[in-house]
């Protein structure tokens, strides 16, 4: 009887246990992975090929203008305008976030209204509004509200292109950063603040030492996005003739008609700046990953995880440990 049962249930060529125990493990074939990788590599090769061989990119001209004095001046303006806009925007934005999180209904609604208004108006429109402020308010004056004035200015003199750009872009950053900061603060569990209060820590100390460091992991990636976005968005000021990186390039190609090479000069500089900022963001994120298990994700490990080429080394290291 028993032999009958085993004959019926076992497959005709069932391997013995000792064979199974010594068998090598083979991963499933993934032809789709290889095919898609091959297609992407071919596309990448085509892109590089055309960049190198298409004469009309005029790389020698690009090289010639890359360190042109006026381009470097434009680059300088782009960098400091971005920095000034970011700093101002974040100071205002943090205050707006605090207003939105406060218990005061007036502050709360004002904060909400500010974010709503600024986010509703396209940045280009805001920029033009500030640039054309003189036609709305020909004269600006300092003084007591509804009372006497101490000093007044002609708006058209005060609001040149750069100040208009600075104000418009700062307000834009303020509205978006307010939401980023508010989200970060809300991501910290209420128990953290209660524990700090129970220990007798003051409000400022609780914010600086307990809430903000824990909010940063949520704030930094979104802020990196905003920062890089704003770096490139400053190119919008070329429409009001502020000589930033892009406008400097445009001024040159308006004279010599080398449009593509000069756009490439501007593009490459934006790529350089974005690369520097991305690397900076990586280190800031790593700094604020204290006490979490995300810290070990170094560059090397990210590469090993994502590139099959490095995977082998990773496995070997894993096997040794």
């Amino acid at each position: 009887m028993t032999s009958d049962v085993s004959e019926r249930t076992a497959l005709p060529s069932a391997p013995a246990d000792e064979h199974l125990l010594t068998a090598r493990l083979v991963a499933p074939r993934r032809p789709g992975l290889w095919i898609s990788a091959a297609i992407l590599l071919v596309l990448a090769a085509m892109l590089i090929h055309t960049l190198v061989t298409n004469r009309r990119f005029q790389w020698p001209t690009v090289r010639g203008y890359f360190f042109e004095r006026s381009i470097l001046h434009g680059l300088e303006l782009t960098i400091w305008l971005t920095a000034a806009v970011l700093v101002t925007g974040y100071v205002i934005g943090t205050a707006v976030a605090a207003a939105r999180l406060s218990k005061n209904p007036v502050l709360k609604s004002l904060g909400f209204g500010f974010v709503w208004l600024i986010r509703s108006v396209p940045m280009l429109v805001q920029l033009l509004f500030w640039y054309e402020l003189a036609s709305l308010y020909p004269k600006l004056s300092l003084g007591i509200p509804f009372g006497p004035e101490f000093a007044s200015f002609k708006t058209a003199h005060l609001f040149g292109g750069i100040l208009a750009a600075y104000v418009a872009l700062s307000l834009d950053v303020a509205a978006f950063s307010a939401e980023i900061v508010r989200g970060g603060i809300l991501s910290v569990p209420a128990g953290q603040v209660e524990a700090a209060q129970a220990l007798g820590l003051g409000r400022g100390r609780i914010f600086r030492r307990i809430v903000l460091p824990q909010a940063m992991p949520a704030i930094v990636p979104a802020s990196g996005n905003l920062l890089i976005g704003m770096l490139k968005a400053t190119s919008i000021v070329s429409v009001i003739a502020v000589q930033d990186l892009l406008y400097s390039a445009q001024l040159i190609y308006n004279e010599n008609f080398q449009i593509i090479p000069l756009l490439l000069v501007a593009t490459l500089w934006y790529v350089v700046l974005t690369t520097v900022l991305s690397i900076g963001q990586y280190f800031v994120e790593r700094h604020y990953a204290r006490g979490t298990n995300r810290r070990g994700d170094g560059f090397a490990r990210l590469f090993r995880r994502n590139l099959p080429l490095f995977n082998r080394a990773g496995l070997a290291a894993g096997g040794r440990s």
């Binding site: 209660e194 524990a195 209060q197």
Partner: peptide, 26 residues
């Protein structure tokens, strides 16, 4: 005022159900 409440709280310690240790500090 907040400062006075803070001072009073230093006399009273509290231990929570969810511990509420500060995770970013050792």
């Amino acid at each position: 005022p907040g400062r006075e409440i803070t001072r009073q709280r230093t006399q009273v310690g509290m231990v929570f159900q969810q511990f509420n240790l500060f995770p970013h500090l050792t």
